[in-house]
């Protein structure tokens, strides 16, 4: 039974009650009238009056019910509209927060990846930093070694010079002994001349002179051999000295290059250190971003669930509106054409 019908019935009943009262009164009056105008006329007036009363009651009931249900119907219609909008909005919010949550979790995953890449990079940088530090140390050691070998080279040079001087000294001595041999040779020849002048008497002396001369020749020969050996030695020493000089020159160049390399290595080391620090900072920033992202993901999750709740509430409200609508009557069912 719809509200309309109930209203109609109510107003009909009240009208009937009024009518009944009227009739009762009327009948009382009728009893008086019957006495006046006859029973038939009273009867017809009674029927007519009854019919008129019923029609009047019905008309008033209809009017009352119409006016009440119209107002309610309008309110319910507005409520239904709002419910529809709330429902739509809440579903939009739900989907938006859902996608926000998804985005946040995707961002969180990306950050996770970035973080692990950074971790790797950080360890690589640390390794490189270790290597460059080691290289700096090695460079220092190499430099020290170069210094010491440079000293050795200089000593070698001085030693070669001393050997050369000794060689020259020996050459002088050999020259002297060669001169002595030449003088002995001359003496022996003179002795031979004297022996020849002495004729037969000098024959023995001539043999001695010849022997002395042979000795002188051998001595000269030995001096010549020694001289050639010393000459060779001197030449080789000169070559050695030239080599040492060249090596020294190259050594100086190497030293310069080594200094440059060392400076570069030190620079690389400091750059690496800075880089490591930078990566550390990035790491910290990424961790912060990660934390914030996770928080916003959680927030989005909460928003989504709230929107869900809101949606459910909207649905309930809609069913209530439907209930009211059905109480008012199917005639106004048209307000809930949009079902959520």
């Amino acid at each position: 039974m719809t509200l309309n019908q109930k209203l109609l019935l109510g107003s009909g009943a009240s009208a009937s009650l009024i009518l009944f009262g009227g009739i009762t009164g009327y009948l009382a009056a009728g009893g008086y009238l019957t006495d006046v105008i006859g029973k038939d006329a009273v009867m017809s007036i009674l029927v007519l009056g009854t019919a008129l009363g019923v029609a009047l009651a019905l008309g008033i009931g209809l009017m009352v019910s119409r006016s009440i249900s119209g107002a309610i119907k309008r309110a319910v219609g507005g409520l239904a509209d709002s419910t529809t909008q709330v429902s739509a909005a809440s579903s939009q919010v739900a989907s938006a927060s859902q996608s926000l949550a998804e985005g946040a979790s995707a961002a969180a995953a990306a950050i996770e990846e970035t973080s692990s890449s950074l971790e790797e990079m950080s360890s690589t940088t640390k390794k490189a930093l270790d290597n460059s530090t080691f290289m700096t140390k090695t460079g220092d050691i190499t430099f020290a070694l170069m210094k010491s070998s440079h000293r050795s080279l200089r000593e070698t040079d001085a030693c070669m010079k001393r050997i050369g001087e000794s060689g020259a000294e020996a050459a002088k001595i050999i020259k002297t002994s060669d001169e002595i041999a030449f003088q002995i040779n001359l003496l022996a020849l003179n002795a031979a001349v004297e022996a020849a002048r002495a004729g037969e008497a000098g024959a023995g002396f001539a043999v001695v002179a010849e022997e002395v001369r042979n000795l002188a020749m051998r001595s000269a020969e030995a001096a010549r051999n020694t001289e050639s050996i010393i000459g060779e030695m001197t030449r080789e020493i000169k070559e050695g000295m030239a080599l040492v000089a060249k090596t020294l020159e190259e050594f100086y160049k190497m030293g310069d290059e080594g200094k440059k390399t060392n400076a570069l290595i030190k620079e690389i080391d400091s750059v690496m250190e800075q880089q490591a620090q930078g990566i550390e900072q990035i790491n910290r920033a990424i961790a912060e971003i990660d934390r914030i992202t996770q928080q916003s993901a959680a927030n989005a999750e909460e928003t989504a669930s709230a929107a869900e709740e809101l949606s459910a509430q909207a649905a309930q409200m809609e069913s209530l509106v439907t209930g009211i609508d059905s109480i008012i009557g199917g005639g106004v069912g048209g307000v809930l054409t949009v079902r959520l």
Partner: peptide
């Protein structure tokens, strides 16, 4: 000839 020689000097 050696008999012609008196002496040899540097």
């Amino acid at each position: 000839g050696i008999l012609k020689v008196r002496e040899i000097i540097g």
